[in-house]
């Protein structure tokens, strides 16, 4: 397993094995990720979501690496900046407990897409065909 999930989303915790579960807020997840990145763990996902609504979600799941490597200054800058931006965005926001389940569902769906994208890129099982051969031999 080449990634771990830092999450405070209980449905992600219950669905995956490689989870660092944070019993806390979205910001607590960011802070945990920051600590890991400072210790040399790779940041796989961008820390923030892509839509304002999901930045207001109580739940967040972020992919990180499994091993400590050399510190990456760009990634440190990115996670630190993300925390500052997160605070700006949410400083006057009220919580929405009535929508917690929906946020959990979307957070998990976005995580699944992210894991898929990550695994696609790693291509763990290459086909024996390097492309085109199968079709060409049939033709």
């Amino acid at each position: 397993m080449s990634y771990r999930i830092v999450t405070n989303n209980p449905s992600v915790r219950d669905s995956y094995k490689n989870v660092i579960f944070i019993d806390g807020t979205y910001e607590d997840v960011l802070v945990k990720v920051r600590d890991l990145v400072h210790s040399g763990v790779e940041l796989i996902d961008s820390p923030l979501g892509a839509s304002i609504r999901m930045l207001l979600s109580p739940y967040r799941s972020i992919l990180v690496g499994t091993e400590r490597q050399a510190m990456n200054a760009d990634q440190i800058l990115l996670i630190e900046q993300s925390i500052l931006n997160y605070r700006t965005l949410t400083q006057r926001r009220n919580s929405e407990p009535q929508h917690a389940n929906d946020y959990a569902v979307v957070d998990k769906a976005l995580l699944e897409a992210s894991i898929q994208a990550y695994e696609d890129m790693k291509c763990p099982t290459h086909s024996k065909f390097t492309g085109g051969e199968f079709l060409e031999t049939r033709a």
Binding site: I44, D45, S46, L110, S114, A117, M121
Partner: peptide
């Protein structure tokens, strides 16, 4: 496309 993974973004 705007992807979520950093590697995807680089690509």
């Amino acid at each position: 496309p705007e992807l979520t993974t950093l590697e995807g973004k680089f690509r």
